[in-house]
């Protein structure tokens, strides 16, 4: 019975008389495990169509489209906000290099700040702030103690500089 119906549908199919629904019924029949041997060759035709339907764009294609349109974060976008399409901005290795360079410069500034004599700092502070109390002079009576403080400051500056350099080198690879 089923075979007779399928044969009739197939005849209509070859005449280009079938509806989309009838063609779907044919495809569903030929997807079954057991197909009448006489009809088997036509099963390969529907198998071919099925294979072709499996071809899809690569993963993440949805996101790439939405980013191209500038509506990747749709929840925060008002419907009429984006009449022009937006270009996606990506962080490139060069940008990472810049960040690393900025970190190195910051470390250098910190280092120089630490190396600056305490008196000098106080002078700068007086521009906007009242003079510091006389008891905080930040000077050392013992030369050995002063030398140890300078060594410590240099060590901190050197550490920061190395960190900055490593980031800079890593970022440009």
């Amino acid at each position: 019975m089923e075979k007779a119906i399928i044969k009739t549908l197939l005849e209509k199919y070859w005449q280009a008389e079938t509806t989309v629904e009838e063609e779907q019924a044919l495809a569903a029949y030929f997807r079954q495990e057991t197909i009448d041997p006489e009809l088997q060759p036509y099963g390969d035709l529907f198998a071919y169509f099925g294979e072709e339907q499996q071809v899809t764009a690569g993963p993440g294609f949805d996101e790439r489209i939405l980013q191209r349109l500038g509506i990747a974060d749709a929840s925060s976008l008002a419907p009429d906000d984006a009449h022009s399409t937006a270009t996606v901005r990506t962080i490139r290795p060069f940008s990472l290099g810049l960040i690393a360079a900025a970190a190195a410069i910051a470390a250098l500034i910190v280092g120089l700040f630490l190396l600056t004599p305490p008196v000098q700092r106080n002078v700068l502070a007086t521009v906007d702030q009242p003079a510091r109390p006389a008891e905080i002079k930040d000077t050392y009576d013992d030369p050995q103690q002063a030398l140890a403080a300078v060594r410590h400051a240099l060590l901190i500056a050197s550490t920061h500089l190395n960190e900055g350099r490593q980031q800079l080198t890593g970022g440009r690879k």
């Binding site: 764009a57 939405l66 509506i71």
Partner: peptide, 22 residues
């Protein structure tokens, strides 16, 4: 409104369009 309509009705066509383009 447009964003939701796009996601529901147009974006799902991507594979059909892709196959035809391919």
């Amino acid at each position: 409104m447009h964003v939701e309509a796009f996601k529901q009705h147009i974006l799902p066509l991507k594979d059909k369009l892709f196959r035809f383009a391919l």
